[in-house]
Design a binder for these strands. Structure first.
Lengths: 197, 197
DNA sequence: ATCTTCGTTAACCAAATGGTTAAACCATAA
DNA sequence: TTATGGTTTAACCATTTGGTTAACGAAGAT
């Protein structure tokens, strides 16, 4: 593993645990097991190091989002595959959703920066497809964007608000993981059931 | 408005915009229009000032959560009232969900602190009620905690991930608000539809 | 062999930041 | 009038923090 990779991994760990403002360059250096000056040698400054980590995190999430948007499946199939694949992925990377959501909320200027990014998810194809299937009588009349919001909400929220849910609903880590396993399939069933004509 | 109130309001504004780590005592003082020393005179230190703000924020959210948990309504009525009341409240306080979720994720030790708090939401009543209505054949067999998660997800997530959704789904503030207005009633209909026998 | 470049470090620096202090201010009661 | 108590401020302080500098060493290049 190159030094740059060591730094990047350490930065990812620290940023995802503490956020941009809470992260300390020294802590990242310690985590990477190198001198603090190396951070600046490799990544110039805190902002650029953070952007590298954030963009990478978002780039990991984006493909799964774009998959649902742009394949040739039916809407029902897309929902089924997306929820399954997304939850599977996020179980292995549970820190990603809170991190991305937090920093996007805290850094509105930052949001703009990657709306032009190549990996930017673009839902227009799926939204049009939903409207078509509504007209075809496959799906009940509804606002396609609301459906999109429902899919994201049911899929991502438990991970985004992990600590809050653990605190309120009082579930252990193992029970949480069991529930997420169940949601891999149950969410799609539930959504499709409620929108099919 | 007393000085303490001025400080508290300013602290709420700054903490909710920047989070604990990103907030600066000087910025809070400026926002309150008073000298920085007053912060420490009134609230001792940053941590205590933050805890005051956080507890207040959570105390505002908790009653609505507890309402659904402990009233005498049927599960369907509870869901209907909760989603409507909660979204209504959060439209007027859209900064609360991201703030609470973010700080609970960042401060796991802090979570413990108010799990003993009097205002702590306790879902045991509702969870038992859901099980009873399942046995009574009113609700399809399901894991009550999953249902709770669905309700929270569909209600809170759009606010928690406001910026992310705005960026991905590409909606304006006014369209977002219109959609939230619609969700006040549509979420309950949808959930009830998918769980009623 | 020596020069150059890249990776790496210890030591250092200026600015920012949370927090303190001592004095001034001001209402009110003796 | 003046003593008294809480309130408020300007100035200050210690530490932390992001960032810089100069030197060092290894590996190729000349």
């Amino acid at each position: 593993m190159t030094t740059e990779e060591k730094i990047f991994n350490a930065a990812r760990t620290v940023f995802q645990k503490k956020g941009f403002a809470g992260a300390r360059m020294q802590e990242i250096a310690d985590e990477a097991g190198i001198n603090k000056a190396m951070l600046h040698y490799c990544f110039k400054n805190k902002q650029l190091l953070f952007e590298a980590v954030f963009m990478n995190a978002f780039s990991q999430l984006a493909p799964q989002i774009n998959f649902i948007f742009n394949s040739n499946d039916s809407v029902f199939e897309k929902i089924t595959k997306f929820t399954y694949d997304y939850i599977t992925f996020v179980i292995d990377n549970p820190y990603l959703p809170p991190f991305v959501i937090q920093e996007m909320n805290n850094n509105p200027a930052f949001v703009m920066k990657f709306l032009n990014h190549e990996n930017r998810p673009n839902p227009s194809v799926l939204l049009a497809q939903i409207e078509k299937e509504i007209e075809a009588g496959i799906i009940k009349p509804l606002n396609p964007k609301q459906l999109l919001m429902d899919i994201f909400s049911l899929t991502v929220f438990p991970f985004a608000a992990h600590m809050m849910i653990k605190g309120i609903v009082q579930i252990s880590d193992s029970e949480f993981n069991e529930m997420m396993e169940e949601r891999k399939t149950s969410i799609a069933t539930q959504i499709i059931n409620s929108i099919k004509k």
